[in-house]
Design a protein around this nucleic acid. Structure first.
Lengths: 341, 341
DNA sequence: AACGCCGTTGCAAACGTTTGCTTTTTCTCC
DNA sequence: GGAGAAAAAGCAAACGTTTGCAACGGCGTT
């Protein structure tokens, strides 16, 4: 059984031309029912699969999108990836990924690598501070969707998917206040990421609305060595006078580090200190005690991002390379009360 | 500034033929130093990037490999992915991924999807029981490397990367014995995966070598609903007479579930029951207490898998489509003692 | 019977490379 | 200065598709 490698061989078998076979395979133009059947049969018999590269070369795009994630340090990314991948697949798209490892400029480098692969678009979960490269991509007519990480000013200019981070910060802080906590600390995230600034704003406003003035001593800045550095910060602050009775971690992984520090200090959660996070990665439920957290619909965020990207790709095709006006999707979140508060 | 899209335009600018430009870009054949410089300059000036699809169409392979993972339920996969990705990238390869979600037949489906994309090879972390599809792939001359999941019989027939799972099981059990535990239970994994069977064998042998006959009551089979089902199993067994004083979880995620159950029973780890895992995913250190575990070099496993794949690809090119004899890489592991034992 | 139309099909030129072969240029050596 | 070889460059045919245009035949209409 010879391996059939091209449309021409199928054509020969069926006694038609290659064009006809192509038309059958694409279902674009009409083909007489009889020949259609015959071709389809031959294709099935031989197990022939058309060469996607050839098609893509002709049409100028491989059915492939690129997903950029910063790292796996934060476990939200695998879940987002899963969402992207399932929707992509449903639509015949393949997903390539690139781990930027938080290097500045990595997005642009990847973009350049991918350009000559005729990638249809990008989903970026790893923007850091400087988004100029991303604006440039959009200007060049390349579909891009940002997930989670973007600036307030990007809204209306770039496509984005996220939750309402301000509300998330507000709600979690409010919950701590309502459960009677007095001195609520916040573990801030990288200040170059707006999502953390928003959560911080929500924290401040929730406190003020409850008649509490935010105490600078309780506003913990992300240490230079990254979130693991919170371990030492917590150890220090808990021994000082005026230690907090609750800690709002602006992401679950930060909460994990913080809980570790509290355990090592033999401080009881939640009796002495309550801890709340944001994300709800899978493992949050397995912490001791299980972590109360604001659940982001991570997988769904990936799905939505891919849908928006597909919309852009389609619009672009129909409008002669023009991109549609940007879409900013905000998904709902849930406060998930477990035993750490 | 017009966008240069093809080698021909560069050729025109430099007053040479397209072939020459191609040769400069590939560095294959000799080109006079002067023209070389001129072409390179023009390429740089215009920011031109050759169309990889066209090249691949001609040469019959896109520089891309496909990584299949079962799911993200087990956090070892993100770390393996990172390893694969970095090596792939160093060698100019792009990685596409596919999540098989443990569906039987998913490997083959993905394989078929990828075949017409001229994928150079596959790294599979998701084989389940039936590897016939994978043998078929190899027979068709497609480079494949299995990571972690494969059968003993595959050794010598397929390329693999893993740790010595028998030793890993042996060492962890032995460690429990030596620290004075008497009744050591094992939480087995999916019996269709040999790696779990090996760990189990190691467990039995370690016990016997210590003069302890494995007690069937302490051999816990993975429940039908997957590892989460261990929650109820543990809750039950701990209340029965002859409850274990140590539990060997054949993977870290299983250990997490088990620890959750023990906490909920108010059983103290490690005083009443010691827990040991295998994997050392990042979060193991953040459990309460931090999990003692056999650390697999996950990222390194990904890297090695990619290297072996590259070797296959290269050999294949040089030997007229022939694959090299299979390689079975076994990487060293470390027993990481933390506070759960 | 001639006409035009429409539904089908084929032809051939693209898409942007690579590469075997040929031609031209350059160099070397007598 | 010329012959010959070696080096450099060009030509054109591929790789496997898609697609505009042309061709063909059959049918209904006048």
């Amino acid at each position: 059984m010879e391996q059939i490698t091209s449309i021409k061989e199928i054509a020969q078998i069926c006694g038609v031309s290659a064009s006809t076979v192509s038309r059958v395979l694409n279902g674009k133009s009409y083909v007489r029912e009889g020949t259609r059947k015959r071709v389809l049969e031959a294709v099935k018999q031989s197990g022939f699969r058309p060469n996607l590269l050839a098609r893509s070369l002709k049409q100028g795009n491989l059915q492939t999108i690129c997903l950029m994630v910063p790292s796996y340090g934060n476990l939200i990314f695998p879940e987002i990836m899963r969402g992207v991948n399932t929707v992509a697949r449903e639509h015949g798209y393949t997903t390539v990924f690139s781990i930027t490892e938080e290097h500045p400029g990595a997005e642009e480098a990847t973009y350049n690598e991918m350009r000559n692969r005729q990638i249809s678009g990008f989903i970026i979960c790893s923007a850091i501070g400087d988004e100029s490269a991303i604006y440039r991509m959009r200007e060049e007519g390349v579909p891009v969707v940002l997930v989670n990480r973007f600036k307030k000013e990007d809204i209306g200019h770039l496509d984005t998917v996220s939750v309402d981070n301000y509300r998330a910060g507000y709600v979690s802080t409010q919950y701590l206040v309502r459960s009677g906590r007095q001195r609520i600390a916040i573990a801030c995230g990288d200040p170059s990421l707006d999502l953390y600034n928003e959560r911080y704003r929500g924290y401040c406003d929730a406190l003020r609305d409850a008649g509490i003035e935010p105490d600078p001593a309780l506003i913990l800045q992300e240490p230079a060595e990254g979130q693991d550095g919170y371990y030492n910060i917590i150890k220090r602050i808990m021994l000082e006078p005026g230690a907090p009775d609750a800690i709002f971690a602006t992401s679950d992984p930060k909460a994990f580090v913080i809980m570790r520090a509290l355990h090592d200090l033999k401080i009881c959660i939640p009796r002495d200190v309550a801890v709340i996070g944001i994300d709800n990665v899978e493992l949050s439920a397995y912490m001791e005690p299980p972590l109360t957290t604001v659940a982001q619909p991570l997988t769904r965020m990936g799905e939505e991002a891919m849908r928006i990207l597909l919309r852009q790709i389609e619009y672009k095709r129909e409008h002669d390379g023009e991109l549609p006006p940007p879409e900013n999707r905000i998904l709902p979140f849930d406060l998930l009360v477990r035993q750490s508060t």
